[in-house]
Design a protein around this nucleic acid. Structure first.
Lengths: 175, 175
DNA sequence: ATGCTATCTTGTCAGTGCCAAGTTTGGGGT
DNA sequence: ACCCCAAACTTGGCACTGACAAGATAGCAT
């Protein structure tokens, strides 16, 4: 006779989705386990069962993010320019994941749960990048910098399609 | 007859210094006004008098950061490569300031207190950067990306002097 | 059907940000 | 020299949070 069944069905997935929404709107610091529980209609301690602690929730988001990034890069083809644009597109269209992924103080960055997909994304990137270390660093830096600058609101005069705006910028390095 | 005088002398400065230390060690999310008060030997509400709220404290740190960045760039000379290296050197030697500066969700990013020094830093950067918009974006992106990747621990195979390691990387863009 | 276990709840505690009201102190105006 | 007033700080309190412990429920394998 209760409105919500005792077992949610897929609470873990629901919490992750809700968390990504909140982070995307207000940043990682704005997320609260109790608030997520309220939004999902469960008790205040339910999230702890699935993630252990708050860092565990963010670890799951980071892992999912590296997985998604790896897939994005893999499906971008072998061209370095296209891969770079795909990197920017991923970052700006998965704001929440990206912010968490590169803020290791927020989660269990050394957990195997996140190390595996991170390595997979790293390999996808390395396979399309130049062989010389400096050139590889330059390529990663320019796309990562463009993405983070856009995410932090420093690039307002660029239009509403950051991935498209990134293409001619990246080309300057690859010429 | 009390151990600590009622008036601290320069509590504002002391709180800022302590905050920068904590953020540098554990990130911005780890700082707590009450903890800073304890470390400084004042009551738990003293920080609010100087900064209004927690975001106000971080606003002061961001403002100080943009001021320091502007000075670093100005004293780096007119060469773009040197300015780029100076940018990376600032970011990696002022970890706490830099992290806060580019996480606007943490502070009052539209406050005039921080807008003025941010503009000054922007001008110092623009004065040394290429005139074409894409080239300017490329230069900012590559140094910002290198710096943030290093700060997030993604660049471990680079040695202990990130500014020096950045030079040949930046040169690839400017050739 | 029965018991086992993952899932979820209830209750509690220390810590935090913020607000309101009170206390102390240094310094400027007379 | 005095007063007094505004700035600096304290005390007390409230709502919220993360984490822990112990109990309740329900799906599932046997």
């Amino acid at each position: 006779m209760r409105q919500q069944p005792y077992h949610h069905g897929d609470l873990r997935r629901a919490l992750l989705t809700e968390a990504v929404t909140v982070i995307g709107e207000s940043g990682p610091h704005a997320v609260s386990l109790r608030d997520l529980a309220r939004r999902t209609g469960v008790s205040h301690a339910a999230p702890q069962h699935h993630f252990g602690d708050k860092a565990g929730l963010l670890t799951a988001i980071a892992a999912e993010g590296f997985e998604l990034l790896a897939r994005s890069l893999e499906s971008a083809g072998d061209d370095l320019l296209d891969a770079g644009v795909a990197y920017v597109r991923f970052a700006t269209s998965h704001k929440a994941h990206f912010e968490v992924m590169f803020t290791p103080a927020l989660y269990h960055a050394d957990s195997p749960e996140v190390a595996a997909p991170r390595e997979r994304a790293g390999e996808a990137l390395a396979a399309r990048a130049p062989k010389r270390r400096e050139a590889r660093l330059a390529a990663w830096s320019i796309v990562h910098g463009f993405a983070t600058l856009w995410l932090s609101g420093a690039l307002t005069d660029i239009g509403d399609d950051p991935a498209a705006a990134a293409r001619p910028v990246i080309r300057l390095l690859l010429r």
